[in-house]
Simulated scan of single mutants.
Amino acid sequence: MTAHARDGLERLLSAPTLSANETAQLLGLARSTVYAGIKAGEIPAVRVRRSVRVPSSWVRRVLQVDDSPEDPVSDN
């Protein structure tokens, strides 16, 4: 795994939102396709001034990424 891919995965798990470019990279899409999906209502997004942000929780669901702990500690 490249450092760039690792950074993208870390952002996916830690940041509340992702840029359209980050979303495109994680989903393996062109940035224009992400913007078209946002415009069509297929991809949820929040616009703050000129910035468009996609909830990372949505991207995790699409990619079926489980962000829960691998081995929860039991009290036994």
Rank of each mutant, 00 (worst) to 15 (best):
Glu42Trp: 09
Trp58Gly: 07
Ala45Gly: 12
Ala45Leu: 14
Ala36Pro: 04
Pro69Asp: 00
Val54Lys: 07
Gly28Trp: 07
Pro44Gly: 04
Ser19Glu: 09
Glu70Asn: 03
Asp66Phe: 00
Val59Thr: 03
Ala36Ile: 09
Ile43Asn: 06
Arg61Phe: 04
Ser51Phe: 10
Asp7Thr: 13
Met1Gln: 07
Leu63Met: 04
Arg50Gly: 13
His4Ser: 14
Pro16Asn: 09
Gly28Val: 15
Arg61Cys: 14
Pro44Asp: 07
Val48Ser: 14
Ser14Ala: 11
Ala45Gln: 01
Val65Phe: 00
Gly28Met: 01
Leu18Asp: 10
Pro69Met: 01
Thr33Met: 06
Val54Asp: 06
Ala36Asn: 09
Glu42Lys: 12
Val34Ala: 08
Pro44Glu: 06
Glu22Asp: 11
Ala45Arg: 01
Ala45Met: 10
Leu27Cys: 08
Pro69Asn: 02
Val65Lys: 01
Asp66Met: 00
Leu18Ala: 15
Ala3His: 02
Thr2Tyr: 13
Asp67Ala: 01
Asn76Cys: 02
Leu13Tyr: 12
Asp66Gly: 00
Pro72Gly: 03
Val46Asp: 14
Val62Gly: 04
Arg50Lys: 14
Asp66Leu: 00
Gly28Lys: 10
Ala5Arg: 08
Val48Gln: 06
Glu22Tyr: 08
Val46Trp: 12
Asp66Asn: 08
Arg60Asp: 05
Glu42Met: 12
Glu22Trp: 15
Glu70Pro: 04
His4Thr: 15
Ser68Val: 00
Pro72Arg: 00
Leu63Lys: 04
Gln64Asn: 05
Val54Thr: 03
Thr2Leu: 11
Val34Pro: 03
Ala3Met: 14
Leu18Lys: 11
Tyr35Trp: 11
Ser68His: 01
Ile43Leu: 12
Ser32Lys: 05
Ser19Cys: 03
Arg60Ile: 00
Ser51Asn: 03
Thr33His: 12
Val52Cys: 04
Ser56Met: 05
Ile38Cys: 01
Pro69Tyr: 00
Ala15Cys: 04
Val59Met: 08
Glu22Ile: 05
Val62Arg: 13
Gly37Arg: 10
Asp71Ile: 11
Trp58Asn: 03
Leu26Phe: 01
Gln25Met: 15
Gly8Leu: 11
Ala45His: 06
Ile43Thr: 08
Met1Arg: 04
Met1Cys: 12
Ala20Asn: 15
Asp67Ile: 00
Arg47Ser: 10
Arg53Ala: 07
Pro55Ser: 09
Arg60Glu: 01
Ala5Asp: 13
Leu26Trp: 05
Arg31Glu: 14
Ala20Phe: 14
Glu10His: 03
Leu9Tyr: 15
Arg31Cys: 03
Tyr35Ile: 06
Glu22Gly: 10
His4Leu: 08
Arg49Leu: 15
Thr17Glu: 13
Leu13His: 06
Arg11Trp: 10
Pro72Val: 00
Leu13Asn: 05
Gln25Phe: 13
Val59Pro: 01
Thr33Ile: 06
Ala30Gln: 11
Ser68Met: 05
Tyr35Glu: 08
Val52Trp: 05
Ser14Glu: 05
Asp75Val: 11
Val46Lys: 04
Asp66Thr: 00
Pro72Met: 00
Ala36Gly: 04
Leu9Pro: 10
Pro72Asp: 01
Arg49Gly: 01
Val52Phe: 13
Ser19Val: 08
Val54Trp: 09
Trp58Pro: 05
Pro44Thr: 02
Thr2Pro: 13
Leu12Ser: 07
Leu12Lys: 08
Ser74Lys: 07
Ser68Lys: 00
Val48Cys: 08
Ala15Phe: 09
Arg11His: 12
Val62Pro: 04
